[in-house]
Amino acid sequence: MSRWQWAVVAVVMSVVLVGAGAYVLVGPREQVPVPTAQATPEEVARAWIDAANARDLGTMRAIASEDRADHFVPSYVDLLTQQDLVVTDDSIGRARDYWLAGTRLNGWQQVQYVPVQFRVLQSDGSFSPTSRTTWGYVFARNGDDERWRLVDQGVG
């Protein structure tokens, strides 16, 4: 083979190796099933946490409200820079009715807040890995035949 052909082979192999390495770094660790309409808000919170820990962005997008998915689901850049949340030692509390005037909840017929606590092992530095964080997820839907969708999250 000529030098030119060897150079092309080297470039192609480099691209393949970099792509495979990037996938190992950011690819899903496992696939988490998307909760059905019969799942409770607590079960959806569990699926959200499991999907986040597994880097299953597809399940996370399926759980998040369509208009909030870009805000809640990490990007591949976040995954490469290790700024995705990885939590452990989590506990999920009982869901309760939730409603706040002036929020994005207008138009949803059923809204539930699920309190959680966890220890964040990996993040952008805004959480301490040595203490448990109190957090919560707000899920909403318009009827019993719809899946719960994540519409907000934070300290409740």
Rank of each mutant, 00 (worst) to 15 (best):
D89A: 12
D124K: 00
R132P: 04
D90H: 15
V120P: 01
V86T: 11
V86Y: 12
G102V: 07
R104D: 14
L121F: 02
G102Y: 05
S91Q: 14
P129S: 05
Q112W: 07
L100N: 02
T130G: 07
Q109F: 09
L85E: 04
Y98H: 15
T88L: 03
L105S: 11
T103F: 02
V86Q: 13
L105E: 12
D97L: 05
A95S: 14
R94K: 15
T88G: 11
T88S: 15
D90K: 00
S128Q: 05
G125M: 00
Q112C: 00
N106A: 15
D90L: 11
L105A: 14
T103I: 06
S128P: 08
T103G: 13
R104V: 14
A101H: 03
D97G: 11
D84L: 04
S126I: 01
R104S: 14
S126N: 12
Q122C: 01
W108L: 10
G125F: 02
D89I: 03
Q117F: 04
W99K: 10
P115Y: 06
D97M: 05
D97W: 09
R104P: 06
Q109R: 15
W99P: 00
S131V: 15
R104Y: 09
W108A: 06
N106L: 11
V86I: 13
V116Y: 01
L85N: 07
R96M: 08
T134G: 00
V116E: 03
G125I: 02
F127K: 00
L100K: 14
T134R: 13
Q122K: 13
S91A: 15
L121A: 14
P115D: 11
D124F: 05
